[in-house]
Design a protein around this nucleic acid. Structure first.
Lengths: 243, 243
DNA sequence: GCGGCTATAATGTGATCACATATTAAGACA
DNA sequence: TGTCTTAATATGTGATCACATTATAGCCGC
């Protein structure tokens, strides 16, 4: 099983025989953003991306429009495109939104969980541990996202997953920054508790485990870097978004 | 103050001097969907919309791509575009997601509320009542959305508002159907209780009022029509989404 | 040496065209 | 009269071009 492929959306682009260029571009950019390969504040250009990916401007434009709607990129009014910068307030909001949505999504998905899905969760959790062991940031991030999305996607056609993925795209680039700054060996996760709750089909325990995982596993590393970056972020002018 | 204009997004397209064609098209389609002027399942074409709005295909494509990312329209793989159809499961999910996000958004916005904002809330609430009185569906829906969004938008640059608006876009067309079926005079809202909680700066009371408003005010009319539509919706084949 | 101005380059936006493919309607055959 | 085949119509996708506007580097004057 391809690790990176699991990062890409499952509810779109999946059951389609012919894959359009725009889909390929979208998936590629999306993975780059989610895994933090593009830094916050980094400027992008349509022509530059078109040349880099070997396609015309058309698919780039549509992929960027889609990513902008997901708040993964920012279309500034002054004819410039960039990955949004993080602020302490936004980081706090993103965490609160993640907790609100992911605890509910986990709770509602629990009824659809079977043994095969639990096996996949264990597999992704091992990926996370392996990522910590060999200091592989991509593997850590990808495993973490895959673990959560696999759980929430147990429920077919969930309306939660797209919303949650939008939050991940917003937090991804910053998370990567934090990870290289802190080091993955200082991260913690509560996946074991979440797995226990899933096995026991215990809704309340699962909610608590997910919230604990989000708070303990990601927040404190973010908060630390947040203070470090606060001054730098403050000098960035408030962007004026466009359509 | 224009009533319809308040439906349009505030964080985008706002602080921009020159408005692009794509933004105008997006806002127009967005309002049409939010107020249910386009029925669920209704097919759309790029060329058809381009002719109707008097522009080329280009801005239509980008606006649709953006709306598709917000799940307001569905890009099927078979070269067809439509407004998504509602199912009982999806309706239930949408309500749960709204409660999770809107109670949290209201709670976090409360600290930014001032008297001027409360005055606007009262104004929008009057709009809702007036909509009920004269059986004006647009007014009822627009007032309702404006009331909620004004409250949540008290917090500057909220990450919640775009997510919530995506849910509104998904529920809007169906809500309109339900409204003409039931009649707006049989709707109930808990805006008075929410307003009391806002004035008292009582976070917990506000959360309870918002949840009650969503559950009582919109759900039961939806549930009733849901049963009515269940058979018809079931015969629609499961769509295969694209990018 | 430095700040304001100008010319050049770069960028997003919109329009138009070509093309592969899916849908639909017409027609042939049983 | 119903069903399968086939032709024609329609549709989304991608590429290319023109254009207004913005950013940037070069230059002049002080």
């Amino acid at each position: 099983m391809s690790r990176i492929a699991e990062i890409e959306p499952v509810d779109q682009d999946a059951a389609v025989d012919v894959v359009t260029v725009q889909q390929r571009v979208y998936s590629e950019l999306r993975t780059d953003i989610l895994l933090g390969r593009i830094a916050p504040g980094e400027p992008l250009t349509i022509r530059g991306l078109a040349e880099r990916l070997g396609v015309s401007a058309m698919p780039i434009r549509e992929a960027l429009r889609r990513l902008a709607a997901e708040r993964a990129v920012e279309l500034l009014g002054n004819r410039r495109i960039r990955i949004p910068v993080m602020s302490p307030e936004r980081f706090d909001d993103l965490l609160a939104a993640r907790i609100a949505l992911e605890t509910e999504a986990a709770s509602r998905a629990l009824g659809y969980v079977d043994d095969a899905l639990i096996a996949k969760l264990v597999e992704y959790n091992d990926e996370v541990d392996e990522g910590v062991r060999i200091r592989d940031y991509d593997r850590w991030l990808a495993g973490n996202f895959a673990f959560h999305r696999t759980l929430y996607s147990a429920q077919p056609d969930s309306v939660f997953v797209p919303l949650i993925e939008s939050l991940w795209l917003q937090i991804g680039p910053f998370l990567r920054q934090a990870l290289v700054y802190i080091g993955p060996e200082f991260t913690v996760d509560r996946h074991a508790e979440a797995l226990d709750a899933v096995r026991a089909r215990n809704r309340m325990a699962l909610r608590i485990a997910i919230e604990a995982d989000l708070r303990d596993g990601i927040t404190h590393i973010g908060n630390e870097l947040m203070r470090f970056n606060a001054a730098a972020a403050a000098k960035d002018s408030k962007p004026r978004r466009r359509g």
